[in-house]
Structures are given as structure tokens and as C-alpha cells.
């Protein structure tokens, strides 16, 4: 098998050389498709990151029932702390809350009135990054022995959740369509090479070549088209992302663009592997279809 590799690579090069224009067109098509795919991955990642960030900034505030003893409040705090994804749990005494409120809204002159403290004891809960607020808020609402009321900026949280989900669904849909179209392009490109080399395939069959042996040069060609296209798109994407990213950060500094090396590397790896994989699978489909009908 290994001694055949030299032959396979030579055959691949002969194939590419003979239909060089077609190979260049395929590489460009793969590059463009992967550019759109990669661009969308970057946008999705950044929007998801933004959604997560906004969601994580939101906090849950529980207004406790006035009938609760201090011991019950402590017990409830301990239970909350055990919930997965909780970052901090802070008890706010109603006296402190009332003082804060009066200080914050001094223009209401609440000090001069005989107004009793209308506020209940409360608990402020913040969540760790990457943990969604909605399920936690819904879960906490179930503790009706302790909870008089619960607020969590629900509207914003739900919208962000929905938006995030929409991006994922739309993203997967678009990625699927792009993937299939790129695959079809490669299938057709390789098919043209297969047709151009039909005589050689017949001669190979004639002298006893197995289908697997005949397939290899075409699979290598598919791999090369996918790989070169992927490399080009990753190079273009990364340079454009860093260039535009710096510009965006310059003008909108609070926008949390993803610049983690590991996260970007993951995206570029997905793009590269998708391109290469599609190249090989496309070539396999094309050549298998042709060989299937030949004896």
C-alpha cells in the first residue's frame, strides 16, 4: 500500500495539471463557501458571547416573606448557594435596603415623613458566566414558602435567550445549506476530472485495478482542493477578523468581541476540517458513483 503512494500522488498531480482551470475554480469556490461559513461562525460566536454576557450581568432579586425567621432565611440562602451556576448570594436587610432607597431618591424627601419601611428582606443572586438566568429564576419561584416575589429582568433575559436560540437554529440551517452546496460543487468538479480520465479508468479496470486503487488519486485531489480552499479561507478570515475587530473595538469599545486564541483557533479548525472533509467526501461520492456502474 505504502509503495503505491508515490504513484497515487503522481496520478493526482497529473489529474490536477490536466484540468488545472477546473481545479482552480473549485478551490476558489470552496474558499468562498468556507469564507461565508467561517464568517457566520464568527458572527454567531460573537452574538452568543454578547447574549451570554448580557444574561450573566442580570441578577435575580428575591423578596422574602415577612413571616420568615432569620434561621429560615439563612437555611434558604444555603439552599440557593447549592444550585449549580450560582456565583453569589447576598442577603439585603430591609433596613439597609430602605436606607439605600432613601439615599438614592433624596428628592422624594422620605426622611421628613413618618413613612414606615415598606420594603421586605431580600436576596440578590448573581449567576456565573455561561449559566442562563431563566431556568434558575423559574426554579427559585417554586420556593413559595420563602418567596414573596421574584424579579430578574425577565423580559430582557427571555429576549436574549430567544435571540441566542434563533442564532443557533439559523446558523445551523445556513451552515447545512452551505455545506451541501460546497459538497455538490466538489462532487461535480471531481466528476469532470473522472470523465476526463474515463479512458484511464477503463484501462485500469482492464488490467485488474480494484475500485479502491482507482479511487485514491481522486480522493487525494478532493482532499487537496478542500484543504487549499480551507487554508485560503482561514487566512483571509483571520486577517479580516483581526483587522475589522480592532476597528470595531476602536469605535465601539464596550462591544465584547471574542479575541480568545483558543476560541478563534476552534472556529478556524472547524472551517479547515469542514473544507477538507467536504473535499474528501465530495470526491468519494463522485468517483464511487462513476465506478459503481462499470465492470
Amino acid at each position: 500500500m505504502f509503495r503505491d503512494w508515490g504513484f497515487f500522488i503522481t496520478e493526482t498531480m497529473i489529474g490536477i495539471k490536466r484540468s488545472s482551470l477546473m481545479a482552480v475554480i473549485s478551490i476558489v469556490t470552496v474558499t468562498v463557501s468556507l469564507l461565508v461559513f467561517g464568517f457566520f461562525l464568527l458572527v454567531t460566536t460573537n452574538l452568543t458571547n454578547l447574549a451570554d454576557l448580557i444574561t450573566s450581568k442580570l441578577e435575580i432579586r428575591i423578596f422574602l416573606k415577612s413571616s420568615l425567621t432569620q434561621q429560615e432565611i439563612t437555611q434558604f440562602q444555603d439552599r440557593i448557594k447549592r444550585i449549580k451556576g450560582i456565583e453569589s448570594v447576598k442577603f439585603v436587610d430591609k433596613v439597609v435596603a430602605w436606607d439605600e432607597f432613601r439615599n438614592q431618591f433624596q428628592n422624594l424627601h422620605l426622611d421628613s415623613t413618618d413613612q414606615d419601611n415598606p420594603l421586605p428582606h431580600s436576596i440578590r443572586i448573581s449567576l456565573m458566566k455561561d449559566h442562563h438566568i431563566l431556568p434558575v429564576a423559574k426554579y427559585l419561584r417554586g420556593f413559595d414558602y420563602y418567596v414573596d416575589d421574584l424579579v430578574y429582568g425577565g423580559e430582557i433575559a427571555e429576549r436574549m435567550e430567544r435571540f441566542s436560540r434563533l442564532i443557533h437554529v439559523f446558523g445551523f440551517g445556513l451552515v447545512g445549506i452551505l455545506g451541501i452546496s460546497t459538497l455538490l460543487i466538489i462532487v461535480n468538479t471531481i466528476r469532470l476530472t473522472v470523465i476526463a480520465r474515463q479512458d484511464e479508468i477503463s484501462v485500469m479496470k482492464l488490467v485488474g485495478a480494484t475500485n479502491r486503487f482507482i479511487q485514491w488519486p481522486f480522493l487525494i485531489e478532493g482532499f487537496l482542493i478542500g484543504f487549499i480552499g480551507a487554508l485560503m479561507s482561514v487566512a483571509l478570515l483571520s486577517s479580516a477578523y483581526y483587522f475589522l475587530g480592532e476597528k470595531i473595538q476602536g469605535s465601539v469599545p464596550f462591544f465584547p468581541l471574542v479575541f480568545h486564541q483558543s476560541e478563534l483557533l476552534r472556529i478556524f479548525m472547524i472551517v479547515a476540517l469542514t473544507g477538507t472533509g467536504i473535499g474528501i467526501v465530495g470526491a468519494y461520492i463522485s468517483v464511487s458513483k462513476t465506478l459503481k456502474h462499470q465492470l
Binding site: 500500500m1 509503495r3 503505491d4 485500469m204 485488474g208 480494484t210
Partner: peptide
């Protein structure tokens, strides 16, 4: 040589 290549003969 093509016929022998497909039969995996060494060069």
C-alpha cells in the same frame, strides 16, 4: 508499467 502498478509491484 501501468498494469504492474495496479497490481502493487515494487518499482
Amino acid at each position: 508499467a501501468f498494469a504492474l502498478r495496479v497490481m502493487h509491484y515494487p518499482t
